[in-house]
Structure formats: C-alpha cells, structure tokens
Amino acid sequence: MTPTDLLPCFPSTTSSRGTATVFAQSSRASMRAVADRAGVSVMTVSRALRNDPCVRKEQREKIERIANDLGYRPNAFLGRYLSITKQTRAETSGNVVALLHCRDRTRDETGDGLHGEEALGEHLPWEFLKNHAQTMRLKVEVFPVENSKASVAQVFRILRARGIRAVLVLPGHEPHAMESFCFDPFVAVSLGFGNIGEDLNRVGTDIMTGFRHLTACYLARGCRRIGLAITHKEDVKVNHGFSSGLLRFHKEIPAGDRVPALWLKDDPGRAADVARFTEWFRSTRPDLVIGDENRLRAWMDAAAIPEKQRPLLVSPDWAPGQTVAGLNHRRDLACRFAVDMLTTGLISNQTGVPANAISMLVSAELAGI
C-alpha cells in the first residue's frame, strides 16, 4: 500500500487559474455525538465499535444501538490512517500541528489583551479544532505571528528545531504576516482566504451563496428595501476581502429592492457617525439591514429611532447567542476539513507550496430565521 492509496477522494473543478475548488458539506453524526449520548468517552466508543474486549458486552451493544440510531458510520480513511500511525509513529513533535495565528500587536496592547488560545475565540471554535485533531492523533499548538520578518523568522526556527511538519495558517488581523514565511519544509493549509502571500491549500466558507439564499428568503417574506451597513471591523477582515464580498453581494440584489450601503467607524458614540447613520436611515427607510447587530442597535438608540420604525437586523457573521438571524460560517466544518487536508498531506508528504492549490468551500447556513 502506498501513501496515495489512503487519500480521500475530493470531487473538484479546476478554474482558469489552475486552482481546484471543492464545495463541501457534511451532516454525518460524529463519534463525539455518539459518546455524548452514551455518556462515555470517544475512546470507549472507538473501542466498542472495533469489538475491543476491554469494553463490556452490554456497553458495547448500547453504543452500537446509539450509533445506529444517530446514523454514525465509521470513517474508513481515519481507521486506516490511525492503524498506520500506531505502527510507525511515536508521540513526538511530528504529531504537532502548529496553528500560526497572525495577530496585530497593537490589538494586544490597546485592544482586548488576549493572547494564545484565548485570542482565538472570534476566529474559530478552538475546542472543536483540538478535539478533531486528537481523533487524527494530532495535537494543535498555537504560535502567534506578528507582521514582522523577525517574528516570522523566529517562529520558523522554532518549528524546525522541534521537528514540526504541519502548519495551519490563521490570518486573523494580519493577512500580510506570512508573506516572508518559507513553507518548503511544511505541509500547510490556510483557514479562510485572508492570507496574503503563497497560494496554499485552503478551507473557507462560501458566504456569497449563503447571502444569496438569505436575500431570497427575506425577499419572499416581503422585505423590499434591503440595506447594508459596513463598519471598520468588517472592512479590515481578510484584507478588505470581506467587505468587498458584502458589496458584491449587495449589488446583486435587484435595484428596486436595495438601498445604498452605509460605511461607518466602529464607535457608535461618535457624534459624526450617529448623524450620518440618522441621515441614512431617514432617507432610505430600510426594511432590513445587514450588519453588526450590537453596533446597529447602538446607533439606532443614539439616533432615538422608535422601536416600531426599526428594521429587521441580519448578521453577516452569525454566532450562537445572537438574538438576530444571520449567516453561520460553519467554522467547525472548516476546521474539520482543514485538519483532514493536513492529515492527507502528512501521509503523502505534500510539503511546500502546491503547484495547483485546492480551495475547499464549506456551505454557509442560515441561522435564526
């Protein structure tokens, strides 16, 4: 058996740029879901489904029933991969995935002050990423990277000294940070599309299709004046790519069903922004506004807009706990596929920048509607 015999088959199409784009979606029950329902660990579920004699017969039968009820099917690729890693690898740094978190130093000094794992909350589901990596016998460690050649060189030396072979790039607030990084010795995957530099294999969210579904849903409900409010926070995401995507989507809405987009700073307390928001709202009277929920509410409060006159709010980057509808970017699935892509690269030793990078797009979902 060769390493390529273990590669999962990804359906793909190739664009004129030579980059394959894969659309991925998954609703299959996970081993963790079976474990949670059975009240046991993931390892116990794994052993039970492999008829391990360490698991009591009655417990094994219970787990098998739950797995069948949830529609869980063992991942054959994962099973074969684990059997190989058990035989050929010890627990060394070769099993470590370096999560390169490109951070803005000024945010650490004047912003939320978060570092390492704590700073990842707004970017990805950290616990989910760690747990899925563990099922692949991988351990994820965070390596902050600042936008300086000295920082990039230091991280490179650390990874090489520790024998780490896999890197997962999270652009964060510094999309240019990795421009000088040498990927030649590493299997590398980028999470999202904000990394400026080498064209790596990457996993992101197909937000444009999600926005089209969202718009169609609200147009069908009678919303005829759809507005877009972009703040500085949205504008700087992925090197202005997020705001560009929002504007491109907004222009696809029929002219009679949209109102002009609004650009504002992040601070709802700025008198100039409050005045600008008030003028925009009074002149356009939108039925629905896509934008940051908290800031939009703060601006409407500052503008003293009566509750009955307020439009529906929709979040362009919805997260659990929000009280409005929006677009769920499904970062959990993106993390899962990114780890799977790294695993494939490790098995087949696909180091360096690929000649034809793969872009896997996870379908965004409408949430709270």
Rank of each mutant, 00 (worst) to 15 (best):
G116M: 14
R65T: 04
L129C: 12
G94I: 02
E146T: 12
I63N: 00
L124M: 15
T110F: 15
L78D: 06
D112A: 06
A76M: 15
L129N: 02
E122T: 03
L114I: 04
A76E: 09
S83M: 09
P125G: 00
H101V: 05
S83L: 14
L82Q: 14
S83R: 06
R73G: 02
N75H: 08
E64C: 07
T92Y: 04
T110C: 09
Q134G: 09
G116Y: 15
T135C: 11
W126S: 08
H115Q: 10
K130W: 10
N68R: 12
A67M: 06
T85N: 02
N95P: 00
E61T: 12
F128P: 00
V142P: 02
E141V: 11
H101A: 12
H115M: 08
H101R: 04
G121L: 10
G111I: 10
E146S: 12
L100V: 02
D112G: 12
L70K: 01
Q87K: 12
Q134N: 14
T106G: 00
E118N: 07
R73Y: 13
T135W: 08
D104Y: 08
R60N: 02
L70I: 06
H132M: 03
G79Y: 00
N131C: 01
K57W: 05
Q59F: 06
A76S: 12
K130I: 13
H101Y: 14
H101E: 03
E61F: 01
R103S: 13
L129D: 01
A76V: 05
F77S: 07
I66L: 15
E58M: 08
E91M: 10
M136Y: 13
E122D: 13
K62W: 07
R73C: 06
V97K: 01
R103A: 03
L114F: 04
R107C: 06
G79H: 14
F143A: 07
N95T: 11
P74S: 10
G79E: 05
V142D: 03
L114E: 13
R105Y: 03
H123C: 06
L82T: 00
